[in-house]
Simulated assay, not measured.
Amino acid sequence: MGYDAARIEVLEGLDAVRKRPGMWVGSTGERGLRHLVFEVVGWAVNRVLAAGRGGCVDVTLTSDGGVRVADDAPGDPFQAAGNTDGPDLEALLTSLPSGPEPRGRHIAVVGHFSGGLLVANALSSRLTAEVRCEGIRRLQEYARGVAVAPPAAVGPTTGSGTTISFWPDTDIFETTQCSFPVLAERFRQVAFLNRGLRISLTDERPEGGSRAVLFRFPDGVRDFVAALDAETGVTFHHPDVIGFEREDPRMAGTMEVALLWSGLHDGRIRSFANSRATPEGGTHLDGFRDGVAAAVTAYARKRGLPAADPDTCADRLGEGLGGRTDLAGLTAVVSVKLDHPEYLGATRGRLDNTDVRACVGEAVRDHLGNWFEEQPKRAAEVVGRIVSRHPQGLSDLA
């Protein structure tokens, strides 16, 4: 049988998503289901962040297999309900995003995909969208991505916000059970990385009663480092965490860095770009490594301790990035938010913006160097431990 252009089937919009779900959420197993949740939660998180104030996103796993995501941001109107200003929620639920995916330092990437609300709508047997705006609560319901009826006013309301409730389609997904701990850990990370954001997760499925967690961290990545250290069973006072934020126009973005030397256990270093985990590291971690190495080496030389060229110290320190490091138990979080993030690899696990390395390196070197000067006793302890672990001097870190 011949094959020509007449036999090519072009799939668009709703059909494209329902017939090839793996292309949009990765799989039809629990991993794909989880990314479906991340699509909606990420949309809500970015609405709250765009409002420019401390807001909240409340996620509920309902007893009937659904997921409810509510936020308190200004409500996106239904255009069909007579509102023509601002985003049209009905269009977001029924159309794939046009043009490149949203990017920028103010966008928090919660999941790995960016198909928009249409993906959640198309892959759900039922979805309801509720908007609270201008004192009126409006509601619209969908069945497998198709509107059941136009948006309708269903009563008065106070405040503002949007609630998306959806029930993943059992004809598509192998399971509708999302792991509570896995979702909770990701939401916890997002809350750490976006200071002031509040995210709650409630699970109504257990027969013995619901369970819930609430995440909000006023000190951002400083809280993150303190939490990582607490997981080892060793609790430090918050002042022991060294942290700073800096904006640098050279990299078109901001950085937030926190670190802690405990000396009592192997350290851990975590890195993120626009709230996306970068397990393979990248230029932000290279810069962090350069800055720590330069500050430690400069201090050791100033105090007459055995020292090495910062490059050789940085090479050895780099072995611990993304995992363990033996430099006196260094625990750190490096988070950058960029207007134009660039990644290597299909999984976007490594940041590749070249200007980021020098910017982060300089900032870490300066801030840590100042801390060494202001805290001479702690600095002597930290650098002394590093030197004692390498008795031939920092040169053996190479």
Rank of each mutant, 00 (worst) to 15 (best):
G2F: 15
Y3L: 15
R7S: 15
D15M: 10
R20G: 04
S27N: 01
G29N: 08
V37T: 13
G42R: 03
W43K: 07
R47C: 02
V48C: 14
L49R: 15
G54N: 15
G66A: 06
D71P: 04
D71V: 14
A73P: 11
P74V: 03
D76N: 01
F78C: 08
Q79A: 15
Q79T: 12
N83G: 08
L92M: 13
L92H: 06
P102N: 09
R105K: 08
G115F: 05
A122L: 14
S125Q: 09
R126A: 14
V131P: 01
R132L: 12
E134F: 09
Y142C: 07
P151E: 07
A152I: 09
A153N: 13
V154A: 08
T157D: 14
T158V: 10
S160F: 11
T162N: 11
T162G: 04
T163W: 06
I164F: 05
S165E: 11
T176N: 15
V182F: 02
L183W: 02
F187T: 03
Q189N: 05
L193G: 06
N194Q: 11
N194M: 08
R205S: 07
G208K: 12
V213H: 12
F217T: 00
P218D: 12
F224T: 01
A227T: 04
G233F: 15
G233P: 10
V234E: 15
H237T: 06
H237I: 04
H237W: 08
H238A: 05
H238V: 07
D240I: 06
G243I: 03
E245Q: 08
R246H: 10
P249Q: 13
A258F: 00
H265N: 13
H265V: 09
D266H: 11
R268L: 09
R268Q: 06
S271L: 02
F272K: 01
F272T: 04
N274T: 12
N274C: 11
S275A: 09
R276V: 07
T278K: 04
D286Q: 06
Y299T: 00
K302L: 06
R303T: 00
P306I: 13
P306M: 08
A308H: 00
A308K: 00
P310E: 04
A314V: 01
D315A: 02
L321D: 02
R324P: 12
T325Q: 06
A328K: 09
G329E: 14
V334P: 03
K337Y: 11
H340L: 03
L344G: 15
G345H: 13
T347Q: 12
D352S: 15
N353C: 12
T354F: 11
C359S: 07
V360I: 09
G361C: 07
E362P: 00
V364W: 02
E374I: 03
Q375N: 13
K377V: 14
V383S: 02
H390T: 01
P391K: 03
L394I: 04
S395M: 00
